[in-house]
Design a protein around this nucleic acid. Sequence first.
DNA 1: TGTACATCAGTGAACGCGCGTTCACTGATGTAC
DNA 2: TGTACATCAGTGAACGCGCGTTCACTGATGTAC
Lengths: 185, 185
Amino acid sequence: MAYHHGDLRVTLLREAAKVVAAEGPDALTLRGLARRAGVSHAAPAHHFHDRRGLLTALATGGFRLLAEELRSAPSFLDAAVSYVRFATGAGRGYYLVMFDATRIDAGDVKLASARAETDGALLAGAVTVEPRTPDAPLAALALVHGLVALHEAGVLERRHPGEDAAVLVRSIAQILFSDPANRQA
Amino acid sequence: MAYHHGDLRVTLLREAAKVVAAEGPDALTLRGLARRAGVSHAAPAHHFHDRRGLLTALATGGFRLLAEELRSAPSFLDAAVSYVRFATGAGRGYYLVMFDATRIDAGDVKLASARAETDGALLAGAVTVEPRTPDAPLAALALVHGLVALHEAGVLERRHPGEDAAVLVRSIAQILFSDPANRQA
DNA sequence: TGTACATCAGTGAACGCGCGTTCACTGATGTAC
DNA sequence: TGTACATCAGTGAACGCGCGTTCACTGATGTAC
């Protein structure tokens, strides 16, 4: 076994996302993560300083990934779908931590900039939406975020068994908003 | 000091809600709670069996309180406001735990019935809403729940500084839904 | 091409901590007769 | 009115656990000359 892992930081973050997705943020420990990566238990602290630093880095990575997703969506409705799909699918381990104010360091500079990136990407789509009231973008955000939260809490599964959250969001958003970029569809 | 506390179970739940509101669910420990209540550290286990039992009982109490609030709201819009006010105000310590599937025992009977009570109360208002599409109640639920989550995450404060979440929900819900019971207002 | 050296990544032992849980117990309360 | 007894509520000592964090260290890597 090589003394230097080579890509430990990236590996740790990827494993962390898996752990969080599978067992929740509480189950994420520096020691457990080290075990998964096959590395000494003190190694993670080397990269993230402490547990809070790890979670903050995880959230930061999540915001970047989500921003990427949102930017590649051609319309607001598609962005909403991407958002929900990210949060409930591949990005779940990140998302579960991204808005958890008690566990991450809100003052972190990289986190703030990554979050701003995501906010911008989401807002860019939401402002084009009808009705064009000042609070409509916020309503749109509350809607997608809320839908994800309901999915996470099992409410969606209880009320709409077998349905895909990402599909649901489209039909719901369509009730509430008309999206100019989607008009021809 | 009397050997018997007399009302320990109730006291513990009330203190638990305070702790959760102030420091988050992770900060809630059986031992800490016992300390707050001025009681031996093993006493809480007597009432709630274990930590998960305590959190489940806390969530159950929260659903009951919320259902009460919702039932006394004269219209859907008022119910939405009550919901957000509960979740961000006096009921915050409960709410933070009520939808936390990783921390409570989803199979608990009392929890399920209390939750059903709340669902019923919320739905009763939401079905009267326009547009009367099948998914509109879900959209309404996602909206209020999402708004609370955004408030919790600090997004609301960042985007609408100084504004009251409970007031915001009214104006947002008004954009999206028209409420027959509120038509004369 | 070789060497010296600074820097960086990861190690492993050690620490103290607060926690959840168990358990035999004791004090208080209420009920039956 | 008194007594016996069951039941319930809370005690306190003990256990083992995994954790985060610190620290002096060593192995590897890259860079300057």
